[in-house]
Nucleic acid binder design. Structure first.
Lengths: 214, 214
DNA sequence: GTCTATAACTAGATAGAC
DNA sequence: GTCTATCTAGTTATAGAC
């Protein structure tokens, strides 16, 4: 029943809508808590959201939350782990359908942007609430994030090696590119001027410019 | 005595160091409170930092803070207002020394990057703690941020008009460019591999690629 | 300008009934 | 699986002495 990253690669719009339906349609308590946490942590922050706020949003008493989660921190960790693993899985899936360095980078950028639109709130939390994780949890998540960054950097290096890209400093270009793309979760507005796929394509174009793709 | 934005444009390294000296050298309570707030709000967040934490960092009792600020919120607002106005003033200063559309954009990007390095902690807060401002304060800050974005967009539009740049969607490229550049406050590490001026120059190069400068 | 003392309230979390 | 009731500690902020 649960939609995976596979669908982000193929049909992001349908997938996003299906997910929205899934979200509102789900009546399982853990899912409802998670959905409320995504919204509340994103708009008020982790420390700005009380367990009472969270419980109210799910229409249960605060004590009932502790049947599903041992602590508030574990809810936050949950919000980090799932998206991070979906991204790690998703970028590989997105890339392996493409043959050339150019097409592989385009696919990776498209995936990254579409993911940050489809999981907009989760992505924002991933950026702003790293500091609210306990040191142990933070290390675990940062390790996954670094792993993802290395995958991106490898795509750039491959293109440089084949002569497809001209990049003076791969590490710097990689981080600049990722920051540029991740930014969509900050500014993108649904039902705004641009559809998700259009944004993704334009970002892929901009990525090609950044790496001086021939 | 207080260093202004004028210096960011010219000698960012010297300026940043002078500012650091100024910071640690200042014994005025409001300045020390502000300096502590910048560090604490940045590492734990606004809601994650208590007035007690803040007082402890300044070595005074919590009650003494309220002699200098009427509330915790006013400390946060203070941290937003000064950098925002320095940026608005700074980008104009940076740009007006340059003649061509290319050079003007290069100067703007250089300034933006150097500012986000020199005022790294303040910049991070500006990005992550907008939601912790009261609605009224948030509107005020967002208005300034939009004003800054329009200045950047105008630089791109000017270049398109003169034929210096080729940009399919100025609004999108502007936001992508700003997100890319603002990201430095997230990842930049002092005494790391790259000096601030080197990073600024490379980002200016990347900006030139993004706008397809001829 | 900083202190002690404290008011008024909210935080995360638990015990145990149903 | 959700409830009521509650514990302990922490929160922002104020009053008034020095």
């Amino acid at each position: 029943m649960r939609h995976g990253v596979r669908d982000v690669v193929r049909e992001p719009l349908e997938w996003a809508m299906a997910r929205l339906k899934l979200k509102t349609g789900s009546h399982q308590s853990p899912d409802r808590i998670r959905a409320a946490a995504v919204i509340l942590f994103n708009s008020r922050g982790y420390h700005g959201t009380s367990v009472r706020d969270l419980a109210k949003a799910v229409n249960i008493e605060p004590a009932s939350l502790y049947y599903h989660y041992p602590s508030k921190q574990e809810i936050l960790v949950d919000l980090f782990v799932t998206p991070m693993e979906e991204m790690l899985e998703g970028i590989d899936l997105a890339v392996r359908e493409a043959a050339t360095a150019r097409d592989r980078l385009r696919a990776a950028v498209r995936f990254h942007v579409l993911f940050h639109i489809a999981r907009q709130n989760e992505s924002s939390i991933t950026h702003s609430e790293l500091r609210s994780l306990t040191p142990r949890n933070r290390r675990m998540i940062i390790a996954k994030r670094d792993q993802y960054e290395r995958k991106f950097r490898a795509l750039l290096e491959a293109g440089v090696k084949t002569g497809d890209f001209k990049i003076p400093d791969v590490k710097l270009t990689a981080i600049a590119l990722l920051m540029m793309c991740s930014g969509v979760s900050d500014w993108f507005v649904r039902r705004g001027r641009l559809a998700p796929t259009v944004v993704a394509d334009r970002y892929a174009d901009m990525a090609m410019l950044l790496v001086k793709a021939r």
